[in-house]
Simulated scan of single mutants.
Amino acid sequence: MTGTEFTVDVAGGALTVTRWGSAEALPVVALHGITANGHSFARVAAELPDTLALLAPDLRGRARSAHLPGPYGLGAHVADTMALLDAVGVDRTVLVGHSMGAFVACLAAVRHPDRVAGVVLVDGGFGLPAPPGTDIQQVIGPAMARLSMTFADRDTYRSFWQKHPAFAGRWNTWADTYVQRDLVGDPPEMRSSCVADAVRIDGAQVLEDPEVLGAIRALPCPAWLMWAARGLLDETPGLYTAERLAALDGSGVQLVELPDDNHYTPLFSSTAATVAAQIHTAVQQTMEAER
């Protein structure tokens, strides 16, 4: 399923967005993780019904939006998301976020309750206590380390990701298309497109910014958190457990466990159909509630 790219005017330049689905379909917006890009949602988009379209920007500082300047931070991503909604003429919709993108979705809902009808969060959005001084590289490991690396060619970059514990034994064309979009430059010195400063600034907010961390408890709209049982390196337990998520009791956030997945795989494995079904449910329920 091939998406259609377009750009949106935002502060400092043009944000690149990929759209999957027809122009007549109701659009939802998908926000990717901290070193990812919009094509991480390609398989989810393929699983959506024809009545829905998925719009996935390459967030500021990543992939084909890497040229966009600072200031970085989750507030900048929220502003860019609102600019996207304005550009496509959407007053109100459901936001989907994976990992860091889930925190952006929550912050957008709190800052712009008139624009966000609901949020679907995939293994993100709920902050966990981190020791003082924790750096984002300590949390995301190889995903961050690669930003200072060069790669001889696309096959070398593919091999790097195939060895990542989260993808080992799970590689497929969806994952390959996603990681290849990240690669820029010419052989033998190709590199990730991600701007390291953008990742560090965004990561610091995810770890310690009070507004970002508190957004999930202040949501003015329906919310679903789909959490993976395994972590970023396919370890057990993952970022979330039932015990950790008990802190959300009374928040109204509905929890959906993904017992067979790690932090990355819900977007690339057959679980993408489950994520797509949850998005469809969220759209149906929010539309029904607002009639």
Rank of each mutant, 00 (worst) to 15 (best):
R115S: 13
A14Y: 08
T281E: 13
P165T: 07
E288R: 13
V199A: 12
P237D: 03
E211R: 06
C194H: 10
G118D: 13
V10R: 07
Q284I: 11
D58T: 01
V90P: 09
A242K: 03
W161Y: 09
R170M: 01
A175S: 12
H98C: 00
E47Y: 05
H77A: 07
T51S: 15
D209Q: 00
R170G: 00
R191Q: 11
R111Q: 15
D182N: 12
E47F: 03
L55D: 13
I140E: 06
D186T: 15
Y264D: 12
H263T: 09
G101R: 04
L255M: 00
W224G: 06
D135E: 14
R200D: 12
D182I: 07
D182K: 12
P187M: 07
E257F: 02
A76Q: 02
F268D: 05
E211M: 04
A63E: 05
D86E: 10
V8F: 03
S193G: 13
R19G: 05
I136S: 06
S148F: 00
S159G: 05
L267R: 07
R217S: 13
T18V: 12
A196I: 11
M226D: 03
A272H: 10
G252D: 02
A66Q: 06
D114S: 15
C106E: 06
A166N: 08
G238C: 04
D80C: 09
A228Q: 02
G250R: 08
S99A: 03
W20N: 11
Q205R: 04
H112M: 07
S251R: 08
P27Q: 11
A36Q: 14
A175V: 15
F167R: 01
V94T: 14
P69V: 07
A272G: 09
S270N: 11
D50S: 14
R181Q: 13
D135W: 00
A23N: 13
G252M: 00
A23S: 15
A102G: 10
I279A: 08
G124I: 01
D153P: 10
A108F: 07
V116S: 14
L31T: 13
G70K: 05
P222V: 02
L183M: 02
V119R: 04
S192K: 05
Q180N: 04
D58F: 00
L74H: 01
P131V: 10
P266W: 07
A229E: 15
L213M: 08
P71V: 03
L121F: 06
D209G: 02
I34C: 01
A143W: 12
R217Q: 13
L128H: 06
H112A: 15
L48G: 08
V275M: 06
C194E: 11
G238M: 01
V44S: 09
Q138T: 13
V10N: 09
M149C: 10
Q137S: 12
R158D: 12
D80S: 08
A11E: 14
I34V: 10
L15F: 06
V120I: 09
G231F: 07
D155Q: 12
D186E: 15
L74N: 01
H32I: 03
E257L: 07
E47Q: 14
Q284F: 00
A223V: 01
A63R: 00
A204R: 14
L147I: 04
D209L: 03
P113E: 10
A145R: 11
L128R: 15
G185I: 09
E235T: 09
V110C: 05
